[in-house]
Deep mutational scan, measured.
Amino acid sequence: MAAAAAAGAGPEMVRGQVFDVGPRYTNLSYIGEGAYGMVCSAYDNVNKVRVAIKKISPFEHQTYCQRTLREIKILLRFRHENIIGINDIIRAPTIEQMKDVYIVQDLMETDLYKLLKTQHLSNDHICYFLYQILRGLKYIHSANVLHRDLKPSNLLLNTTCDLKICDFGLARVADPDHDHTGFLTEYVATRWYRAPEIMLNSKGYTKSIDIWSVGCILAEMLSNRPIFPGKHYLDQLNHILGILGSPSQEDLNCIINLKARNYLLSLPHKNKVPWNRLFPNADSKALDLLDKMLTFNPHKRIEVEQALAHPYLEQYYDPSDEPIAEAPFKFDMELDDLPKEKLKELIFEETARFQPGYRS
């Protein structure tokens, strides 16, 4: 834990890192770190609560700039109880001085990944967590956004079992017609939660990839272990087919990539493993919904509104309290091709509203 900075004593240090967030945020305490930044909790002297502050230093890398800009653009436009918001952003007053960006968010005690390492969940908890994931996802999908990296560590939890989806750095506007060349190379989302079509096709992607990830998360809540822990690309596919069985001819016809289709045709026939054999203690309604989410063919996979209306979630289902976005989200430009200098300018502009004396 960093010592509390005395008023006016300059930035606090946390594990050798400068955290320049005073005077409003003090009493910093280390939480963890990701690929390009550290997260601390801090005391907000204005709202009198502890908050989470993520320090991001992305400006050396085009990919990190892209992810940072995506996350900020999306989260500043989203407003939903099951999606983490941005409360404040701290950065230098000029673009030349801006080396880091500090993002202030609600402090959540833990995440689903940490929880599943230590606790076996009751059916009631599984049901409530799944409902909140789908409630947040309904809003995301209504904005025409794909999260693309749903996994237990991106689901934040607090002691009252509130759940918030975080990390929109890989999110995209849904565009089933656009052929994202190089899709697989830039697709760094965790393999275990990846839909089979991501490994088999490169053309376009749809909201059904997020539903697949939610199915993987439900299976993990039922058993405290990942359902498809593939060691590499082909191993991942083999794990999936080992449980779902061989795809039907109709399902194979959806695979545009001939090499991928021929690979699947070359494999020995596998039978589907019954879900109640894998999860003998699970609620039968939970397994019915799991089956509809972990469907090989993305066109037959359940959609988020149908999933919310499934009998497993009937005690929570309330369409009048499951809000959607006001308007579909649009990125003005494809960020993939922009140089990091341009992305830095866009991050600077996007964060201006939090600067003292800002006038829109």
Rank of each mutant, 00 (worst) to 15 (best):
Y128P: 02
K55A: 12
D149S: 00
N45K: 14
G136E: 12
I31R: 01
A42I: 04
Q315S: 04
C166N: 02
A325R: 07
R15Q: 13
N271P: 02
K207G: 12
I90P: 00
E71V: 14
K48V: 08
L76A: 01
D251C: 04
F296L: 15
T295G: 03
N87V: 01
R135F: 01
D167Y: 15
Q97G: 07
N123I: 14
L115H: 01
L146W: 03
Q105D: 11
Y358H: 12
Y113W: 10
A35Q: 05
G85M: 07
D337M: 06
E305G: 03
K292I: 07
L346N: 12
Y131A: 02
P11G: 11
N257C: 08
R79G: 11
L28Y: 05
F354I: 14
E197F: 10
V273E: 15
L146C: 03
T118P: 14
F168M: 10
L338Y: 07
Q105Y: 09
M108P: 07
Y102C: 12
N271E: 11
K272Q: 11
D88C: 02
A286G: 01
V39W: 04
D175C: 06
M293G: 03
Y233F: 15
Q105G: 10
L237S: 08
H180P: 09
E71Q: 02
L76R: 01
T26V: 12
D177L: 12
K342M: 03
L155R: 00
I86Q: 08
L163N: 05
L278S: 04
E334W: 00
P93Q: 15
N253L: 13
K342I: 15
A327E: 07
H180V: 13
L343E: 11
R148F: 11
C65E: 05
A92V: 08
T110W: 11
E350F: 00
Y233N: 15
P196N: 07
L335I: 11
E71N: 00
L134T: 09
E314L: 01
G242D: 13
E250I: 00
I31E: 01
G215A: 13
H269C: 10
I72Y: 00
P339S: 13
L115F: 03
N154W: 04
I209S: 10
M13E: 14
G242C: 15
R172N: 08
W275N: 11
G32F: 03
L75V: 03
V104D: 13
N47M: 12
N201Y: 14
C166R: 12
L150R: 03
N45L: 09
I53T: 00
A174N: 07
Y30N: 14
A52F: 06
P176L: 12
N82G: 08
L258N: 10
K300D: 09
F348Y: 14
T63F: 11
N158Y: 14
S320D: 09
D210Q: 11
W212T: 09
L252Y: 07
P356M: 01
S360P: 14
D100T: 01
R50G: 11
V51P: 00
S266R: 15
I74E: 09
D318F: 03
E109Y: 03
N154S: 13
Y113N: 15
L308T: 02
G136A: 00
G204Y: 09
Y43P: 06
F329Y: 14
G32S: 14
K203T: 09
I198N: 14
I90H: 01
I133K: 02
V304C: 09
T206V: 12
F168T: 01
L264H: 01
A3Y: 10
E349F: 00
Y312E: 10
S266K: 00
K207W: 09
A309I: 00
P226R: 09
L200M: 14
L69C: 05
S202Y: 12
Y312W: 05
N281Q: 09
G136Q: 06
K73H: 10
F348R: 10
V304A: 12
E12Q: 12
S29F: 12
K138Y: 08
I86W: 08
T63D: 07
P323D: 03
T94V: 12
I324Y: 05
E71S: 02
D210G: 02
N154E: 12
I83V: 05
A171P: 08
E220S: 08
K259P: 04
G136R: 13
E326S: 01
Y358C: 14
P280Q: 12
I324M: 05
E314G: 01
G8H: 09
